[in-house]
Amino acid sequence: MRRSRAGAKLGVAVFGVMIFGVIGGAVSAPVSAVELNADQKGAISTNCETIKQSIQQLTRADSKTRVYLGGAYENALTNFIVPLNLRLTKNNKPNPGLTSVQSKFAEKRQAFNTTYTKYMKQVEDLLAIDCKAEPESFYEQLQTTRASRATLQQTTLELNSLLHDHIDGVKKLRSGL
């Protein structure tokens, strides 16, 4: 009897702590590091739906770009870069420069997928925020999303540069034959 009473008390105590924890978490307002002036808050609150629609249209365009560029990078790696290096190796003419570009390109291509996924997740989180009620949180997440987008842009530029380096390497190899 004593054990069951003690057990019941413990259960109630744990349940009470859980409930308070949930309520506390729900009630406490998120601390935002962004300070907006009245004009900015008003503009975000008033044009919330329009801003979200613009962002959604942008993500559709970004998705098309991702498919287009991703396909081109995959084609370059699978149908050109890798087979060339394999053929060179089979002909006892391995080229360390081209091999190095291949591994960098493969790594960056993977980073492109990862960065794109991260960026889209940021956009999803951004669109989930109620910008009418929380303009500051929205703006903070917008800045995070911008940073992800900048990283994505940088990755595509690096991939383009690596592709160009590979072509230059092949031209040098051709001139040496």
Binding site: S54, L157, H164
Partner: peptide, 26 residues
């Protein structure tokens, strides 16, 4: 030809698309 395809996307993921000006935030 593949490089031309990639270059045809002249400015991928431009920053301006998510700027305050583009979204109408003063």
């Amino acid at each position: 030809k593949v490089e031309e395809e990639v270059k045809s996307v002249s400015n991928p993921y431009p920053a301006g698309a998510l700027s305050d000006k583009s979204l109408g935030i003063p």
